[in-house]
Amino acid sequence: MIRPNEDPLKHPISDHHHGHDFGERLVLHRHSIVHHLEPQVKILAMFLFIIVCVATPIHFWQAFVVYGLLVLGTILIAQLPLNVVARRSLIELPFVFFAIMMPIFGSGERVEVLGVSLSRLGIESGASILVKGTFGVLCAVCLSATTPAREILRGLERLRLPNLLVQIVSFMIRYVNVVSDEMARMKIARLSRGFEAQGVRSWRFLANVAGALFIRSYERGERVYLAMLSRGYSGKLPDTGHGSAGIRQWAQGLLLPVLALLVLAMTNIWMSR
Protein backbone atom coordinates (compact mmCIF):
# COMPACT_ATOMS: atom_id res chain seq x y z
CA MET A 1 0.00 0.00 0.00
CA ILE A 2 3.00 2.26 0.13
CA ARG A 3 4.85 3.18 -2.96
CA PRO A 4 7.28 5.91 -3.86
CA ASN A 5 5.62 9.09 -4.99
CA GLU A 6 4.91 8.91 -8.63
CA ASP A 7 2.61 10.33 -11.18
CA PRO A 8 -0.66 8.59 -10.39
CA LEU A 9 -1.33 8.04 -14.03
CA LYS A 10 2.08 6.75 -14.96
CA HIS A 11 2.26 3.04 -14.60
CA PRO A 12 2.86 0.11 -16.90
CA ILE A 13 -0.85 -0.24 -17.47
CA SER A 14 -1.44 3.30 -18.59
CA ASP A 15 1.68 3.37 -20.70
CA HIS A 16 -0.23 0.90 -22.77
CA HIS A 17 -0.04 1.71 -26.40
CA HIS A 18 -2.56 0.06 -28.55
CA GLY A 19 -1.75 -3.28 -30.00
CA HIS A 20 0.27 -4.63 -27.12
CA ASP A 21 -1.07 -7.28 -24.88
CA PHE A 22 -0.98 -6.78 -21.16
CA GLY A 23 2.25 -8.20 -19.78
CA GLU A 24 3.59 -8.58 -23.26
CA ARG A 25 4.96 -5.08 -23.00
CA LEU A 26 7.15 -6.25 -20.16
CA VAL A 27 8.71 -8.93 -22.31
CA LEU A 28 12.09 -8.30 -23.89
CA HIS A 29 12.24 -10.71 -26.77
CA ARG A 30 15.49 -12.64 -26.98
CA HIS A 31 16.50 -16.14 -27.89
CA SER A 32 17.83 -17.50 -24.65
CA ILE A 33 17.46 -20.64 -22.61
CA VAL A 34 15.53 -18.64 -20.05
CA HIS A 35 13.08 -17.43 -22.67
CA HIS A 36 12.55 -20.89 -24.05
CA LEU A 37 11.90 -22.64 -20.76
CA GLU A 38 8.28 -23.63 -20.24
CA PRO A 39 6.55 -21.17 -17.91
CA GLN A 40 5.67 -23.70 -15.23
CA VAL A 41 9.36 -24.59 -14.97
CA LYS A 42 10.31 -20.95 -14.57
CA ILE A 43 7.67 -20.18 -11.99
CA LEU A 44 8.48 -23.20 -9.87
CA ALA A 45 12.24 -22.64 -10.15
CA MET A 46 11.82 -19.03 -9.13
CA PHE A 47 9.56 -19.93 -6.24
CA LEU A 48 11.92 -22.59 -4.89
CA PHE A 49 14.94 -20.34 -5.28
CA ILE A 50 13.23 -17.58 -3.35
CA ILE A 51 12.24 -20.01 -0.61
CA VAL A 52 15.83 -21.17 -0.25
CA CYS A 53 16.99 -17.59 -0.25
CA VAL A 54 14.48 -16.47 2.39
CA ALA A 55 15.25 -19.48 4.56
CA THR A 56 18.98 -18.69 4.62
CA PRO A 57 20.13 -16.84 7.77
CA ILE A 58 21.67 -13.51 6.89
CA HIS A 59 25.03 -14.25 8.53
CA PHE A 60 25.62 -16.94 5.89
CA TRP A 61 26.88 -14.08 3.79
CA GLN A 62 28.96 -16.35 1.57
CA ALA A 63 25.78 -18.08 0.45
CA PHE A 64 24.22 -14.76 -0.51
CA VAL A 65 27.22 -13.88 -2.61
CA VAL A 66 26.69 -17.08 -4.58
CA TYR A 67 22.92 -16.48 -4.80
CA GLY A 68 23.66 -13.05 -6.19
CA LEU A 69 25.95 -14.56 -8.79
CA LEU A 70 23.24 -17.08 -9.69
CA VAL A 71 20.65 -14.34 -10.16
CA LEU A 72 23.09 -12.20 -12.11
CA GLY A 73 24.02 -15.22 -14.23
CA THR A 74 20.34 -15.85 -15.02
CA ILE A 75 19.85 -12.23 -16.01
CA LEU A 76 22.92 -12.35 -18.25
CA ILE A 77 21.92 -15.66 -19.84
CA ALA A 78 18.49 -14.14 -20.53
CA GLN A 79 20.30 -11.20 -22.19
CA LEU A 80 18.35 -8.64 -20.22
CA PRO A 81 19.86 -5.15 -20.16
CA LEU A 82 20.90 -4.36 -16.60
CA ASN A 83 19.55 -0.82 -16.66
CA VAL A 84 16.05 -2.06 -17.54
CA VAL A 85 16.22 -4.66 -14.79
CA ALA A 86 17.37 -1.99 -12.35
CA ARG A 87 14.58 0.37 -13.32
CA ARG A 88 11.91 -2.26 -12.92
CA SER A 89 13.30 -3.12 -9.50
CA LEU A 90 12.57 0.34 -8.16
CA ILE A 91 9.25 -1.00 -6.91
CA GLU A 92 11.01 -2.12 -3.73
CA LEU A 93 12.21 1.38 -2.90
CA PRO A 94 9.97 1.93 0.15
CA PHE A 95 11.40 -1.17 1.74
CA VAL A 96 14.92 -0.01 0.94
CA PHE A 97 14.18 3.13 2.96
CA PHE A 98 12.86 0.94 5.71
CA ALA A 99 15.99 -1.22 5.62
CA ILE A 100 18.24 1.84 5.77
CA MET A 101 16.40 3.18 8.79
CA MET A 102 16.94 -0.04 10.71
CA PRO A 103 20.63 0.33 11.55
CA ILE A 104 20.21 4.02 12.33
CA PHE A 105 17.19 3.91 14.57
CA GLY A 106 17.27 0.26 15.65
CA SER A 107 17.50 -0.78 19.27
CA GLY A 108 20.00 -3.00 21.08
CA GLU A 109 23.75 -3.21 21.08
CA ARG A 110 25.46 -0.51 19.03
CA VAL A 111 28.62 -0.73 16.97
CA GLU A 112 30.83 1.90 15.38
CA VAL A 113 30.94 1.76 11.60
CA LEU A 114 33.11 4.44 9.98
CA GLY A 115 32.56 6.62 13.01
CA VAL A 116 28.78 6.26 13.02
CA SER A 117 27.05 4.44 15.82
CA LEU A 118 24.70 1.81 14.41
CA SER A 119 22.54 -0.93 15.83
CA ARG A 120 24.07 -4.35 15.25
CA LEU A 121 20.68 -6.02 15.02
CA GLY A 122 19.56 -3.22 12.72
CA ILE A 123 22.44 -3.82 10.35
CA GLU A 124 21.69 -7.52 10.19
CA SER A 125 17.94 -7.15 9.75
CA GLY A 126 18.28 -4.30 7.29
CA ALA A 127 20.77 -6.25 5.23
CA SER A 128 18.51 -9.30 5.33
CA ILE A 129 15.49 -7.38 4.09
CA LEU A 130 17.51 -5.60 1.47
CA VAL A 131 19.27 -8.65 0.08
CA LYS A 132 16.36 -11.10 0.14
CA GLY A 133 13.88 -8.54 -1.09
CA THR A 134 16.20 -7.55 -3.92
CA PHE A 135 16.72 -11.13 -5.03
CA GLY A 136 12.98 -11.70 -4.98
CA VAL A 137 12.33 -8.62 -7.05
CA LEU A 138 15.09 -9.50 -9.52
CA CYS A 139 13.62 -12.97 -9.99
CA ALA A 140 10.16 -11.57 -10.67
CA VAL A 141 11.55 -8.99 -13.09
CA CYS A 142 13.43 -11.75 -14.83
CA LEU A 143 10.27 -13.85 -15.10
CA SER A 144 8.10 -11.08 -16.49
CA ALA A 145 10.80 -9.91 -18.89
CA THR A 146 11.14 -13.37 -20.40
CA THR A 147 7.55 -14.65 -20.23
CA PRO A 148 4.39 -13.11 -21.71
CA ALA A 149 1.39 -12.86 -19.41
CA ARG A 150 -0.48 -15.57 -21.30
CA GLU A 151 2.41 -17.94 -20.79
CA ILE A 152 2.59 -17.19 -17.09
CA LEU A 153 -1.09 -18.02 -16.96
CA ARG A 154 -0.46 -21.34 -18.70
CA GLY A 155 2.32 -22.03 -16.27
CA LEU A 156 0.00 -21.44 -13.33
CA GLU A 157 -2.59 -23.69 -14.93
CA ARG A 158 -0.10 -26.50 -15.33
CA LEU A 159 1.06 -26.01 -11.77
CA ARG A 160 -2.52 -26.88 -10.81
CA LEU A 161 -3.75 -23.54 -9.62
CA PRO A 162 -7.50 -24.10 -9.09
CA ASN A 163 -9.40 -23.70 -12.34
CA LEU A 164 -11.56 -20.84 -11.10
CA LEU A 165 -8.47 -18.79 -10.21
CA VAL A 166 -6.90 -19.61 -13.57
CA GLN A 167 -10.04 -18.38 -15.26
CA ILE A 168 -10.09 -15.19 -13.23
CA VAL A 169 -6.47 -14.50 -14.15
CA SER A 170 -7.31 -15.21 -17.76
CA PHE A 171 -10.26 -12.84 -17.75
CA MET A 172 -8.16 -10.30 -15.94
CA ILE A 173 -5.49 -10.44 -18.63
CA ARG A 174 -8.21 -10.14 -21.22
CA TYR A 175 -10.02 -7.28 -19.55
CA VAL A 176 -6.87 -5.34 -18.72
CA ASN A 177 -6.60 -4.31 -22.34
CA VAL A 178 -10.14 -3.08 -22.16
CA VAL A 179 -9.58 -1.09 -18.98
CA SER A 180 -6.28 0.34 -20.09
CA ASP A 181 -7.80 1.45 -23.36
CA GLU A 182 -10.57 3.17 -21.44
CA MET A 183 -8.00 4.65 -19.09
CA ALA A 184 -5.90 5.89 -21.96
CA ARG A 185 -8.90 7.56 -23.52
CA MET A 186 -9.96 9.13 -20.26
CA LYS A 187 -6.40 10.23 -19.58
CA ILE A 188 -6.22 12.00 -22.90
CA ALA A 189 -9.51 13.68 -22.17
CA ARG A 190 -8.26 14.68 -18.74
CA LEU A 191 -4.85 15.93 -19.80
CA SER A 192 -6.27 17.91 -22.65
CA ARG A 193 -8.30 19.75 -20.07
CA GLY A 194 -5.24 20.53 -17.98
CA PHE A 195 -5.76 18.24 -15.02
CA GLU A 196 -2.98 17.51 -12.55
CA ALA A 197 -3.49 15.32 -9.50
CA GLN A 198 -2.71 17.37 -6.43
CA GLY A 199 -3.35 16.36 -2.87
CA VAL A 200 -6.68 16.01 -1.17
CA ARG A 201 -8.58 18.22 -3.56
CA SER A 202 -8.18 15.69 -6.32
CA TRP A 203 -9.75 12.84 -4.33
CA ARG A 204 -13.27 13.67 -5.30
CA PHE A 205 -12.17 13.91 -8.87
CA LEU A 206 -10.26 10.65 -8.74
CA ALA A 207 -13.30 8.92 -7.30
CA ASN A 208 -15.32 10.07 -10.25
CA VAL A 209 -12.61 8.81 -12.52
CA ALA A 210 -12.73 5.48 -10.72
CA GLY A 211 -16.50 5.29 -10.96
CA ALA A 212 -16.55 6.14 -14.62
CA LEU A 213 -13.70 3.74 -15.28
CA PHE A 214 -15.56 0.97 -13.53
CA ILE A 215 -18.76 1.47 -15.46
CA ARG A 216 -16.99 1.82 -18.75
CA SER A 217 -14.86 -1.24 -18.31
CA TYR A 218 -17.70 -3.20 -16.78
CA GLU A 219 -19.91 -2.51 -19.73
CA ARG A 220 -17.21 -3.30 -22.20
CA GLY A 221 -16.42 -6.49 -20.33
CA GLU A 222 -20.09 -7.28 -20.19
CA ARG A 223 -20.34 -7.02 -23.94
CA VAL A 224 -17.35 -9.31 -24.38
CA TYR A 225 -18.92 -11.72 -21.96
CA LEU A 226 -22.21 -11.58 -23.85
CA ALA A 227 -20.36 -12.41 -27.02
CA MET A 228 -18.84 -15.39 -25.26
CA LEU A 229 -22.26 -16.52 -24.12
CA SER A 230 -23.49 -16.12 -27.68
CA ARG A 231 -20.89 -18.58 -28.75
CA GLY A 232 -21.84 -21.17 -26.24
CA TYR A 233 -19.47 -20.34 -23.39
CA SER A 234 -20.29 -22.35 -20.31
CA GLY A 235 -17.47 -21.61 -17.93
CA LYS A 236 -14.60 -23.49 -19.47
CA LEU A 237 -12.01 -21.88 -21.67
CA PRO A 238 -10.86 -24.17 -24.46
CA ASP A 239 -7.69 -26.06 -23.86
CA THR A 240 -5.48 -24.92 -26.69
CA GLY A 241 -3.51 -28.13 -26.74
CA HIS A 242 0.03 -27.40 -25.60
CA GLY A 243 2.90 -29.65 -24.74
CA SER A 244 4.48 -30.10 -21.38
CA ALA A 245 8.04 -29.52 -20.33
CA GLY A 246 10.43 -32.42 -20.83
CA ILE A 247 12.93 -33.69 -18.31
CA ARG A 248 15.61 -31.62 -19.99
CA GLN A 249 13.63 -28.42 -19.39
CA TRP A 250 12.97 -29.27 -15.79
CA ALA A 251 16.64 -30.06 -15.28
CA GLN A 252 17.69 -26.74 -16.80
CA GLY A 253 15.17 -24.73 -14.83
CA LEU A 254 15.55 -26.43 -11.50
CA LEU A 255 19.32 -26.03 -11.69
CA LEU A 256 18.88 -22.61 -10.09
CA PRO A 257 17.13 -23.66 -6.86
CA VAL A 258 19.13 -26.89 -6.63
CA LEU A 259 22.41 -25.01 -6.83
CA ALA A 260 21.12 -22.56 -4.24
CA LEU A 261 20.16 -25.41 -1.96
CA LEU A 262 23.59 -27.00 -2.35
CA VAL A 263 25.23 -23.70 -1.52
CA LEU A 264 23.04 -23.36 1.54
CA ALA A 265 23.92 -26.85 2.72
CA MET A 266 27.63 -26.31 2.16
CA THR A 267 27.61 -22.96 3.92
CA ASN A 268 25.75 -24.54 6.78
CA ILE A 269 28.37 -27.29 7.17
CA TRP A 270 31.17 -24.82 6.81
CA MET A 271 29.74 -22.38 9.35
CA SER A 272 29.05 -25.05 11.94
CA ARG A 273 32.60 -26.34 11.86
Binding site: R174, R220, V224, A227, R231
Partner: peptide, 29 residues
Protein backbone atom coordinates in the same frame (compact mmCIF):
# COMPACT_ATOMS: atom_id res chain seq x y z
CA UNK B 1 -26.01 -22.20 -31.39
CA UNK B 2 -28.65 -21.65 -34.06
CA UNK B 3 -28.70 -17.82 -33.96
CA UNK B 4 -25.29 -16.44 -34.85
CA UNK B 5 -24.79 -12.80 -33.94
CA UNK B 6 -22.02 -10.61 -35.32
CA UNK B 7 -21.90 -7.62 -33.00
CA UNK B 8 -21.51 -4.03 -34.02
CA UNK B 9 -18.07 -3.67 -32.43
CA UNK B 10 -15.66 -6.52 -33.29
CA UNK B 11 -13.74 -5.78 -30.09
CA UNK B 12 -16.76 -7.05 -28.21
CA UNK B 13 -16.61 -10.26 -30.12
CA UNK B 14 -12.95 -11.20 -30.14
CA UNK B 15 -11.31 -12.16 -26.89
CA UNK B 16 -8.95 -15.06 -27.43
CA UNK B 17 -5.19 -14.62 -27.83
CA UNK B 18 -5.07 -15.60 -31.49
CA UNK B 19 -7.43 -15.43 -34.44
CA UNK B 20 -7.46 -19.19 -34.77
CA UNK B 21 -8.31 -19.76 -31.11
CA UNK B 22 -11.00 -17.15 -31.30
CA UNK B 23 -12.71 -18.80 -34.23
CA UNK B 24 -12.34 -22.19 -32.53
CA UNK B 25 -14.05 -20.94 -29.38
CA UNK B 26 -17.62 -21.39 -30.58
CA UNK B 27 -17.31 -24.80 -32.26
CA UNK B 28 -15.31 -26.00 -29.24
CA UNK B 29 -18.15 -25.07 -26.96
Amino acid sequence: SSVGVVFQDPDDQLFMPTVREDVAFGPFN
